[in-house]
Design a protein around this nucleic acid. Structure first.
Length: 223
DNA sequence: GGCCAGGTCAAAG
DNA sequence: CTTTGACATGGC
């Protein structure tokens, strides 16, 4: 896996175009962790309603959320969609962390990066993106987050073709200095670009701020 | 009304 | 190994 210097250029251009994104929108590591599960394939606005419900109920902390009945948890997070599924997934994750670390679940972030990652992935319903989001945005660890927008943006410019999640993650991490602030901002910027200019199934916008990045307009295939 | 959203897992083919 | 289906609410 050879480094791809154009990735850092992409970051710089996105930052110049959009400015800092101030991610993750969550006040505590625990809130970030919950949000990471709730936002799976779901609009962030819906996640905010669900988190507001948990806050209003006073259960947005590790012990309280773990103590809720599953059905009750599901009802509270209903606005986030897939609420039965996500209630179980949250419960799985909290139980797994409690099993290893007791109430001091944030100890998971003190493990070597890939060990911590494997531990999070061991929870049913925590896949690579959720695990990396938790590591980066809740734990402050340099684990690059790949998502559907990242795939789409890179593929439209002919980069990372044929790479899966793990391959793209390694490409980013081999091409960038391992700085948490850089990983944080870059992923947020890619999401911003995707939302505004890189819609599914549509040609690239003429006004896309990185339209000519990597040497020319986007490729013909619009994933 | 249809499509999409900061995925993941299990079951088919 | 690749593709498909299930899971669900709310905005545009």
């Amino acid at each position: 896996m050879s480094p791809e210097p154009r990735l850092l250029q992409l970051h710089d251009r996105l930052l110049a175009a959009f400015g800092p994104q101030h991610w993750w929108p969550g006040e505590t590591p625990f809130e970030v962790l919950v949000g990471a599960v709730l936002t799976q394939n779901t609009n962030w606005g819906n996640v905010e309603r669900a988190i507001a419900n948990l806050k209003a109920r006073g259960v947005l902390d590790f012990a309280a959320l773990r103590g809720l009945e599953l059905a009750e948890l599901a009802e509270l997070i209903r606005p986030a969609g897939y609420y039965n599924l996500k209630a179980t997934r949250l419960r799985n994750l909290l139980d797994l962390l409690h099993h290893h670390h007791g109430e001091t679940w944030e100890e998971v972030f003190r493990l070597p990066l890939e060990t911590a990652r494997e531990r999070l992935l061991a929870a049913r319903g925590v896949g690579p993106e959720t695990a990396d989001s938790i590591l980066l945005y809740a734990g402050g660890r340099p684990s690059f987050v790949i998502d559907a927008y990242t795939f789409r943006v890179l593929h439209r410019h002919g980069l990372g073709l044929g790479l899966d999640y793990h391959g793209l993650r390694r490409l980013f991490m081999a091409s960038l200095p391992p700085k948490v602030s850089l990983y944080n901002e870059f992923h947020a910027l890619l999401v911003r670009l995707g939302k505004d200019y890189c819609k599914k199934g549509r040609p690239a916008c003429v006004s896309c701020p990185v339209r000519d990045w990597a040497g020319g307009p986007a490729v013909a295939e619009f994933v």
